[in-house]
């Protein structure tokens, strides 16, 4: 039980997909403009990584090693399409805001990375918690980045105006702002890691 919990926790800080593994930066840069987009993207990716981890670890004995990548991609694409349809049904607004980045979860390297590095070698239960931890780690990273960008870039948090008379720094709402924020946070994470060692 303790080991499973450790599998879950490692994705959140020690092996955080965004700040430590530095995977899946393309959607991170693109959708982290507002916190609501960040949360939506995070939940969608969490569902996909948990689902694909479970299925892949279930059928790992059945998949020949040499064609494992196409098999993984089919499994992942199936989950992404399910997310896409569900999002269209229940939250068309979010679907429109995330745009092309929902179908692009297929090529998010966090998902394929977990299938390749973890799910195909571990039990179903462990893979489930690994996926959950990675997904939540990714979501938290997105929330952190998008909160900084939304507050500085438009003076809002989750769409609510925070303070009156604040002149927003538009740069943070635009792509260069995303690169700056992620770069500085990566540096901060490395600094903290060094100090602990």
């Amino acid at each position: 039980m303790k080991k499973i919990f450790a599998e879950f926790l490692k994705g959140i800080i020690k092996e955080n997909p965004t700040f430590v593994l530095v995977l899946g930066l393309c959607p991170t840069l693109a959708v982290s403009v507002t916190v609501s987009n960040g949360i939506g993207m995070g939940i969608a990716a969490t569902f996909v990584v948990v689902g694909s981890n479970i299925i892949i670890s279930l059928i790992k004995g059945f998949i020949p090693d040499r064609i494992r990548i196409p098999c993984f991609i089919v499994v992942i694409a199936t989950f992404v399409t399910i997310v896409e349809m569900t999002m269209k049904t229940y939250s068309p607004l979010l679907y429109r805001a995330l745009g092309i980045y929902v179908p692009l979860i297929v090529v998010n390297c966090i998902v394929l990375g977990r299938a390749e590095a973890y799910a195909q070698k571990n039990s179903v239960l462990n893979s489930l918690f690994d996926g959950l931890g990675m997904g939540i780690g990714f979501t938290l990273a997105l929330i952190l980045i998008s909160a900084i960008r939304e507050i500085l870039g438009s003076g809002k948090f989750l769409g609510h105006l925070l303070f009156k008379g604040f002149e927003p720094i538009f740069l943070f709402g635009m792509p260069p702002g995303a690169l700056l924020v992620i770069g500085l946070l990566l540096g901060l994470f490395n600094l903290l890691k060094k100090e602990r060692v």
């Binding site: 196409p70 098999c71 694409a77 399409t81």
Partner: peptide, 19 residues
């Protein structure tokens, strides 16, 4: 290999059509 991949694709297509 072809058979394995085909089986996975059929399962995927079936579950997607359900959704």
């Amino acid at each position: 290999y072809g058979a394995v991949l085909a089986l996975i694709c059929i399962t995927a297509a079936f579950s997607l059509s359900m959704v």
